[in-house]
Simulated assay, not measured.
Amino acid sequence: MKLFLSLALFAAFLLCPTACADGVREGLSLAAVQALPALFPFFVVSGLLVRCDTARLSPLLAKPLSRLYGLPPEAAPALVLGLIGGYPVGAATACALLSEGVLSREAAERVNRFCNCASPGFCIGLVGLGVFGSAQAGALLYGIHIVSALIVGLFFARTPLSAVSQRIHNRNRTSFPSIFCASVQQAASTALTVTAFLTMFSILLRLLSPVFALLPYGNVLDGMIELTNGLDELTELPLPRRARLTLASFLLGFGGLAVQFQVRALAEAHDLPVRGLFAAKLLHGTFAAVLTAFLFSLSPAVLTVSSPELTPISVRFRYTLAVLFVSALYPIWGWKKRRK
């Protein structure tokens, strides 16, 4: 099978040089214009936090991480940066925590399954304003995206970490210039990995686009390959607003194969297992789609598409987001306490 796929790719590259060249240009443009400007600062920050004593910075997260997910407080940087930094900042942080001896392999594997999320800027700017013409719709999709990720994490935290896996190795104390240089170098390596996979999957998308065009609503499959291009295609689908919002929510949770292979490449470079990653992302997308459809059915106006101009997020809408987070997390907290 591996040989067949390799030969198929080789034949496709030989037979479709124009499509390959267009894919390379699109992938490099996507990395340079959209991905790296948003991700690179978080790559550097994650490296700095990993090399500092982050346990003292996360006392508020220590109890939730332990009760809900069975994780030590040192996992907080991977979770927090993964929720706000964008794909694949969470994976890069988890790998750095593992390589620095801050997290065990078991703990890093657990947090890596649900800490890779889209950034708020991506959801509000590209999805909300770019696809649906509404900043509020994008903000609500981001809220649903985060809640779904936190719920997915519970499915992989049913067993406590072993006593051996909770041990943390002592790290050598180094100066800030040293950890800054190491963080920038690590960020550059991660950025190169992201660029390579965005380029490769843009080529694959170019090669597969004629096949997808023959299928009904085949444009949706673009997002399963590469997320950004797939979301752009949603504007062309002759579907009602509710269906397109639900599809966008699913694609944000699933992340696309390009993102998943970025996570896999970073993990395997640090000898971090990636078992269950595809299932976790599929579950993430399913939960996000169900929550979106449910919320839309309760109040269609909450995802109203307005003009393409930036619409301010009102206090009332922020209150709606806060209620969504609390209402989703409170029963989860009670369920975990009852299990104890």
Results as ranks from 00 to 15, higher is better:
Glu106Gly: 15
Phe43Gln: 09
Phe42Thr: 13
Glu100Asn: 04
Gly101Arg: 00
Val44Gln: 12
Pro72Trp: 02
Leu65Ala: 08
Glu74Leu: 00
Leu97Pro: 00
Pro59Asn: 14
Leu103Arg: 02
Gly82Gln: 02
Gly86Ile: 06
Leu83Gln: 12
Leu71Tyr: 10
Leu79Pro: 06
Leu60Tyr: 13
Leu68Glu: 07
Gly90Asn: 01
Gly101Gln: 00
Ile84Trp: 09
Ala76Phe: 02
Glu106Ile: 13
Val50Asn: 00
Gly82Val: 01
Gly90Val: 00
Glu100Gln: 08
Ala75Leu: 09
Leu71Phe: 07
Ser99His: 08
Arg51Gln: 14
Pro64Ser: 02
Pro64Lys: 07
Gly101Tyr: 01
Ile84Lys: 05
Ala62Gly: 10
Gly90Arg: 00
Leu39Ser: 10
Asp53Met: 01
Thr54Gln: 11
Pro73Gln: 03
Ser46Glu: 05
Val102Glu: 01
Val45Phe: 15
Gly70Cys: 07
Val50Pro: 00
Pro59Arg: 13
Ala62His: 09
Leu60Asp: 06
Ala108Arg: 08
Ala107Tyr: 05
Ser46Leu: 03
Ala92Pro: 07
Glu100Thr: 12
Pro72Arg: 11
Pro59Ala: 15
Leu60Ile: 15
Ala94Met: 05
Ser66Trp: 10
Ala75Thr: 02
Gly70Asn: 10
Leu97Met: 09
Leu98Asn: 04
Ala76His: 03
Leu48Gln: 05
Ser104Val: 08
Lys63Leu: 14
Gly85Phe: 10
Phe43Thr: 03
Pro72Gly: 14
Ala91Asp: 12
Ser58Ala: 15
Cys52His: 14
Ala55Pro: 07
Ala107Lys: 08
Arg67Met: 10
Leu103Met: 10
Arg105Cys: 13
Ala107Cys: 08
Leu57Gly: 13
Ser99Glu: 14
Ser66Tyr: 06
Ala62Gln: 12
Tyr69Leu: 06
Ala75Asn: 07
Leu98Val: 06
Ala107Ser: 15
Lys63Ser: 14
Ser99Asn: 05
Cys52Lys: 11
Ala108Ile: 11
Phe42His: 06
Ala96Glu: 07
Val89Phe: 04
Lys63Asp: 10
Ala55Tyr: 02
Ala76Thr: 06
Leu68Arg: 03
Arg67Gly: 00
Leu48Gly: 03
Val50Gly: 02
Pro77Arg: 09
Gly70Glu: 05
Gly47Ile: 01
Leu71Asp: 09
Leu49Trp: 08
Gly85His: 11
Leu98Gln: 06
Gly86Ser: 03
Ala75Gln: 10
Ala78Gly: 03
Leu81Asn: 04
Glu74Cys: 01
Tyr87Phe: 11
Ala96Val: 04
Arg105Tyr: 06
Ala94Gln: 03
Ala108Met: 11
Gly70Leu: 09
Ala108Trp: 04
Ala108Asn: 09
Ile84Tyr: 13
Leu83Glu: 05
Glu100Tyr: 04
Ala96Met: 08
Leu60Lys: 08
Phe40Gly: 04
Gly86Cys: 05
Ala92Cys: 10
Ala62Arg: 12
Leu57Met: 15
Leu81Gln: 10
Lys63Cys: 12
Glu74Met: 00
Leu71Ile: 07
Arg67Ala: 03
Ala55Thr: 13
Glu74Val: 01
Pro72Thr: 09
Leu97Gly: 04
Ser46Asn: 04
Asp53Ala: 09
